[in-house]
Amino acid sequence: MGTSLTPEFWRLFAVLLVISMAVTFVLSAALDVLALRAQRRHIRRRPTATRTTEASRRPVRTLVRH
Rank of each mutant, 00 (worst) to 15 (best):
H66A: 15
S56Y: 10
T53P: 05
I43D: 07
L63N: 05
S56D: 09
S28C: 05
R41W: 04
V26S: 06
L5N: 11
Q39R: 07
G2R: 15
A29H: 04
L34D: 00
L31V: 02
R46D: 08
T6R: 11
L5C: 10
L34F: 04
L31Y: 00
L34E: 02
T48C: 05
M1D: 13
V60Q: 00
A22Y: 04
T24F: 12
E8M: 10
R45L: 12
V33D: 02
L17C: 12
A55S: 08
T6N: 05
E8D: 12
G2C: 11
L16A: 13
T24N: 08
V18D: 03
L27F: 06
W10A: 07
R37M: 00
V26N: 04
R61S: 02
M1T: 10
F9Y: 05
R61Q: 05
I19D: 01
H42S: 15
R65W: 03
I19H: 00
P7F: 09
Q39T: 09
A35N: 02
M21A: 11
A38P: 02
L31F: 00
Q39A: 13
Q39W: 06
S56K: 15
I43L: 10
R58Y: 01
S20Y: 07
S56I: 15
T53V: 15
A30M: 02
L12E: 13
A30C: 03
T62P: 04
M1G: 13
R58N: 03
P47L: 07
T48Q: 09
L31K: 00
T53R: 14
A30K: 02
L5D: 09
L16R: 12
G2V: 12
A30F: 01
L27I: 06
R61N: 01
F13K: 10
T48K: 10
V23L: 07
R58A: 01
S20D: 10
I43N: 05
H42P: 06
